[in-house]
Simulated scan of single mutants.
Amino acid sequence: QEERDHAMLFYQYLQNNSEPVVFASVDKPDWTRGDNMTPLIKGLEHEKYVTSLINTIYAAAYEARDFRTMQVLDWFVKEQGEEEKNASDLITKMELFGSDAKGLYMLNSELKSRVYAAPSLVL
Rank of each mutant, 00 (worst) to 15 (best):
K48C: 02
P39F: 05
D66M: 04
M106H: 12
T51P: 02
I57F: 04
T69E: 14
K48L: 02
G103K: 10
V22N: 12
N36W: 14
V21C: 00
D89C: 00
V22Q: 15
Q80I: 05
D89L: 06
K48R: 15
P39S: 01
G98R: 08
T51W: 13
M37W: 12
E82H: 15
R65Q: 14
D100A: 06
T56E: 15
R68S: 07
W31F: 00
S52I: 05
V72A: 05
E63C: 02
L104K: 08
V22R: 15
S109D: 11
H46R: 13
S99V: 12
T38M: 13
T92P: 03
S109Q: 14
E82D: 03
N17R: 11
L53M: 05
Q80F: 08
N17V: 02
E47L: 06
D35H: 10
A60Y: 08
V26T: 08
M37D: 03
Q15M: 02
S18A: 05
K28H: 05
L96H: 07
M106K: 13
M94I: 02
N16K: 14
K102M: 11
L90Q: 07
D27K: 10
K28Y: 14
L96P: 03
E84P: 00
V72R: 07
P20Y: 14
F67S: 03
V21F: 01
G43P: 00
F97K: 14
E82V: 09
N16I: 05
D100N: 11
I54C: 08
G103N: 02
A24P: 00
L90G: 01
K102A: 02
E63H: 08
E79L: 10
L53D: 02
I57K: 06
E83G: 07
D89W: 09
K28S: 01
P39N: 11
E45F: 11
F67N: 09
P39I: 10
D66G: 04
Y58M: 02
V72S: 04
N55P: 01
S99K: 15
E45H: 09
E95D: 00
T32S: 12
D89M: 06
M70V: 03
E95K: 15
W75T: 06
A101E: 10
A87Y: 03
I91H: 03
M106E: 03
L44C: 04
L14A: 08
L40W: 13
N108A: 03
